[in-house]
């Protein structure tokens, strides 16, 4: 663990922040590592954007620290070379052309204007870059934001809801793009309030609710956890099947006139047992939970059991 956290490129440690009476961040702690896409998910208002703003030094937390490459963002001299971020896709002045927007950003980091044209190509802005950004569609705005994030060729990229407003083509492009960034060895933090958007994109997930981390886990682990080893069985003789499987130590639950749910035995063993005992069955299928279900489960917990410390909820 200690080995891994040394490589961590974004570290968030015990952030706490209030907005009036509302606790926006309540001990938020996690780390983002290089070479993979980390999904940052939670319901609306869970604290995703606030966390990102604290990471960028835009908002100040009352307690805790947010480090980029081991130091607070506000002490970075050319921060866009360390961390590229897309927070609000419309955060530019509409009367300026996209290229000029990138140009002033480039100058602020001592990045050569040639790089501006590179990121324009990379983000797929193309000829639109010479138009006023105010007339851009949401998708084009996202691309402009991405281009700005890539400007300093940073090892860490942080994107807030990059899928918002993208058409299916755009979503496909964004997924490939994020994967490519991770493949290049960058740490990528992507927030979303919809797990489905991240299902095929993220390697790792930080799930938050009510200002704290509910789960910090890999996607496969989370799925396995959510599936819980349940197997659905369709049989014309439910009582017989129940007796046989129960005898082998499994928990069996009737879910319909000819269907039961079996927990505690892997599916291949169930098939062998039933065949050995001559129980008729037409279908055996391991239940595979969707990420969405797992997420719903987790965040519901976060809402219902607020008292549980993050350390216990996270694995």
């Amino acid at each position: 663990m200690s080995d891994e956290s040394a490589k961590a490129t974004i570290e968030v440690i015990g952030l706490r922040k209030r907005f009036g009476p509302r606790l926006a961040l309540d001990g938020m702690t996690f780390a983002v590592r290089p070479g993979r896409v980390t999904g940052f998910v939670g319901p609306n208002g869970a604290g995703k954007s606030t966390t990102m703003r604290v990471i960028l030094g835009l908002d100040a937390a009352e307690e805790g620290r947010a480090l980029v490459g081991g130091v607070p963002y506000r002490t970075l001299r050319r921060p866009l070379r360390h961390l590229g971020a897309l927070l609000d896709a419309s955060a530019f002045q509409p009367s300026r052309t996209a290229r000029n927007h990138l140009l002033w950003l480039a100058y602020s980091q001592g990045v050569s204007p040639r790089r501006v044209d590179e990121v324009i190509e990379q983000a797929g802005l193309g000829t639109a870059a010479r138009r006023k950004a105010g007339g851009f569609s949401l998708g084009m705005r996202q691309r402009l934001g991405i281009a700005a994030a890539l400007l300093g060729d940073p090892p860490v990229v942080m994107l807030d809801e990059p899928f918002n407003g993208l058409d299916p083509d755009g979503i496909m492009w964004m997924r490939g793009f994020l994967a490519e960034l991770a493949r290049q060895g960058r740490a990528v933090l992507v927030s979303s309030h919809l797990m489905s958007e991240l299902e095929d994109t993220a390697d790792h997930l930080v799930v938050i609710g009510r200002g704290r981390v509910v789960a910090d886990t890999s996607v496969s682990e989370l799925l396995a956890e959510a599936s819980g080893g349940r197997v659905a069985l369709r049989t014309s003789a439910p009582p017989l099947a129940t007796r046989v499987l129960h005898g082998a130590g499994a928990t069996v639950l009737a879910t319909g006139p000819d269907t039961v749910e079996v927990t505690g035995l892997p599916d291949e063993e169930i098939v062998a047992l039933l065949a050995r005992n001559g129980v008729p069955f037409s279908q055996v299928s391991a239940h595979r939970a969707t990420l969405e279900e797992a997420y719903m489960e987790l965040t519901r917990d976060a809402v219902e059991y607020r008292g549980i410390p993050a350390g216990e909820a996270a694995r």
Binding site: P79, F92, S108
Partner: peptide, 16 residues
């Protein structure tokens, strides 16, 4: 103008 459009956040992220 920067505050109105939210660009101030871009500015401050670029020059903290």
């Amino acid at each position: 103008g920067e505050y109105g459009t939210g660009m101030i956040r871009t500015t401050l992220a670029a020059v903290p």
